[in-house]
Design a protein around this nucleic acid. Structure first.
Length: 225
DNA sequence: GCATTAACCACAG
DNA sequence: CTGTGGTTAATGC
C-alpha cells in the first residue's frame, strides 16, 4: 500500500536507503492530512514520533509570557518538524499548526533512530539542517530585538515573497493577529503599517491579498530596521 | 518642549 | 476579524 520510494524525504535526506530499509520505513510511518488551522501537535504533550512535513505550510508557535502567543517560524514542506522534542523529556515544547492544507507523515521514534544509525548521510543531512536553522535563529533573534515593527513587517513580507511563495503577489495565510504574534507587536499596529505601506506605494493590500509594488523600498525599510 | 513609536482601548463594519 | 481614531507612556532630539 504505502510506497516510500518516491517520498521527497528519500531524495532530500535518505536517498541511500536500500529496499529493505525503505520497507521498514513504510511499515512504520503513517500519513495524515491537516486542514488550515488544524493542530498537528501541541505544546505540553508527550512526543513519541517525528513528523515529516510532506506538503503545505505550518506555523511553529509557543505560549509565552502571560499566555501571550508567539509564532516562532513558518515551515514549508518538505521539512522535518518537531525533532528537538524527541530528546530529553520527550515532551513537545512548542506547537505546530497547519496554516494551509498540509500533509504530514509520522514516523516512530525507535524507527527514526534506527534510520539514523543505518545511514550516515541521513544523519548528516539532519545535522546540517539544524546548523542552518540555528544560524537563522541567531539572525532572527537580533532582528527581533533590534528592529522596530516596520522593519519586522517588511522582513515578514519579504519572507513570504522570496522564500515561501516565491512571488511578489500572494495570499497572506495569517490573520493580522497572527502577523502581530510573529514579531511581537499588536494587531492594530500591523493593520496600520500595512495601510501605510500601501499609502506609500510600497505594496497593494486587499484583505489578505498582498502584492509588492516596490520591493526596493521594502528592502530599504527592512535594512534600516 | 516636540516628535516618534507603539501599546491599549473603544467602536464601527 | 479588521481598520481607525484617541490616549498615553517611553525615548530621543
Amino acid at each position: 500500500m504505502k510506497d516510500c520510494t518516491n517520498c521527497q524525504f528519500n531524495l532530500y535526506a535518505a536517498k541511500t536507503f536500500n529496499k529493505e530499509q525503505l520497507s521498514s520505513m513504510e511499515d512504520n510511518c503513517s500519513g495524515k492530512t491537516f486542514k488550515k488551522g488544524e493542530l498537528i501537535f501541541k505544546e505540553g504533550i508527550t512526543c513519541s514520533r517525528v513528523s515529516l512535513l510532506k506538503e503545505g505550510l505550518v506555523k511553529i508557535h509557543m505560549v509565552g509570557v502571560g499566555g501571550r502567543e508567539q509564532i516562532l517560524k513558518l515551515v514549508k514542506a518538505p521539512n522535518y518538524i518537531g525533532i528537538p522534542n524527541t530528546v530529553g523529556d520527550k515532551t513537545y515544547h512548542y506547537s505546530a499548526t497547519a496554516i494551509e492544507e498540509t500533509q504530514v507523515c509520522f514516523i516512530g521514534l525507535d524507527n527514526f533512530k534506527e534510520l539514523l544509525h543505518l545511514s550516515k548521510d541521513f544523519a548528516y543531512n539532519i545535522i546540517a539542517d539544524f546548523c542552518k536553522n540555528e544560524i537563522l535563529h541567531f539572525r532572527n533573534c537580533i532582528h527581533k530585538t533590534q528592529k522596530q515593527s516596520a522593519g519586522l513587517l517588511a522582513d515578514a513580507l519579504l519572507n513570504f515573497a522570496n522564500n515561501i511563495y516565491e512571488s511578489h503577489s500572494f495570499t497572506l495565510p495569517l490573520s493580522r493577529q497572527e502577523m502581530a504574534d510573529s514579531f511581537g507587536t499588536s494587531r492594530e499596529n500591523v493593520s496600520r503599517m500595512l495601510s501605510e505601506f500601501q499609502r506609500d506605494g510600497i505594496i497593494k493590500v486587499d484583505k489578505k491579498e498582498i502584492s509588492i509594488v516596490n520591493i526596493k523600498r521594502l528592502e530599504l525599510i527592512s535594512g534600516l530596521g
